[in-house]
């Protein structure tokens, strides 16, 4: 795919509430992604997301400022419940969203057939990372943009860009929980609830924090303790993949899968833009307006500075990161741990 050099990439920002959406718009988002208050999107947190009325108001606000609204309908419908996903797509179309973010091929097919005039983006949840897989989605469902899994190096992204007939969106900041994007079942195994549809990786109703007399805090998910933080030690999200576990071959508890750390690819913005990335996504629909304001504004400046020839670092955002640590993850090397 021939790409013009140094085009201005889109900054795609999270909004878990109408107030967060307005904050993102004000802070310089080119596009905002959000979802309805149900299992059709992968951030189904209690108290989060949009009612239909709120979505209508949010779209009007965003469009008035020239900001696009991308509707996340990016979970996988269980058998017999497809109607909820159809309703979300139909409602999004009626309200005037600019694109659907989709993962399931049934939902993608429905959106393509019933609402062909609305852009379709392939969610990271679909975990499409090869040219063959992405081309299949483009040819079958008219996908216009793929959100790439966070397992690719910049070199691999560059190679992909030359081989696929659609735009590329990559995560630039936020949660760094890779596993098999969209297909992780660790939470289902421990709690019986869906990782994707019942409140991300840790349904809040299943999470408990217990402080011991020694000041250590134990994090429990369902019946299992998944981490224990000493007084003053930085904490992470209560997810199984970021927990510490004992194993016979280890002398002490260790991070078996991932560590509590957030992605920050600000230092690689020049390389990613040169590789052909069309849009940069900030993770964090579950985060506050304060997070949205700080991160969106910082990346707005960083992208503009990069296009002007600069090389931003954005180290100050580490205060907002999980475990107060950040990583360039697989973008720099597959051996990020």
């Amino acid at each position: 795919m021939n790409r013009p050099a140094k085009k201005r990439p889109e900054l795609v920002c999270p909004a878990g509430t109408p107030a967060a959406l307005r904050t993102a718009v004000e802070a310089g988002a080119d596009a905002v992604y959000c979802g309805f208050q149900n299992a059709t999107n992968a951030r189904n947190f209690p108290g989060l997301n949009f009612t239909p009325d709120e979505m209508a108001g949010a779209i009007a606000h965003a469009h008035a400022a020239g900001t696009r609204v991308l509707l996340a309908v990016n979970t996988f419908p269980p058998a017999g419940k497809f109607g909820l996903w159809q309703e979300a797509v139909d409602l999004g179309a009626e309200l005037g969203v600019d694109a659907f973010i989709l993962a399931d091929i049934g939902v993608a097919d429905y959106a393509a057939r019933v609402h062909p005039g609305i852009r379709r983006h392939l969610s990271v949840q679909a975990a499409a990372s090869s040219p063959e897989a992405i081309r299949y989605f483009v040819e079958e469902f008219g996908i216009r943009r793929v959100v790439l899994p966070r397992i690719l190096t910049v070199g691999e992204i560059r190679a992909l860009a030359d081989e696929i007939p659609c735009e590329i969106e990559t995560f630039i900041f936020g949660n760094h929980g890779l596993m098999i994007e969209g297909r992780c079942s660790l939470t289902n195994y421990v709690t019986g609830l869906s990782t994707n549809m019942d409140g991300v990786c840790s349904p809040a109703a299943e999470v408990r924090y217990d402080t011991g007399v020694d000041g250590c805090v134990s994090t429990r998910l369902g019946p299992h303790i998944i981490d224990r933080f000493a007084p003053g030690e930085q904490a992470g999200y209560p997810t199984i993949c970021k927990g510490r576990y004992f194993a016979p071959a280890r002398g002490e508890a260790y991070y078996a899968f991932e560590e509590p750390v957030s992605l920050n690819l600000a230092p690689l913005l020049p390389e990613l833009i040169a590789a052909g990335v069309d849009a940069f996504k900030i993770e964090g629909r579950q985060r506050s307006r304060a997070y949205v304001r700080a991160v969106v504004a910082a990346f707005r400046k960083a992208i503009d500075a990069t296009l002007a020839g600069g090389r931003p670092e954005l180290a100050e955002l580490v205060a907002l990161t999980e475990g107060q640590r950040q990583t360039e993850g697989a973008a720099r090397t597959k051996r990020w741990r």
Partner: peptide, 13 residues
Amino acid sequence: DGDRDGDALFFSR
């Protein structure tokens, strides 16, 4: 005040 992020305050204990 909408000025602090709860997750970040949790991470920093």
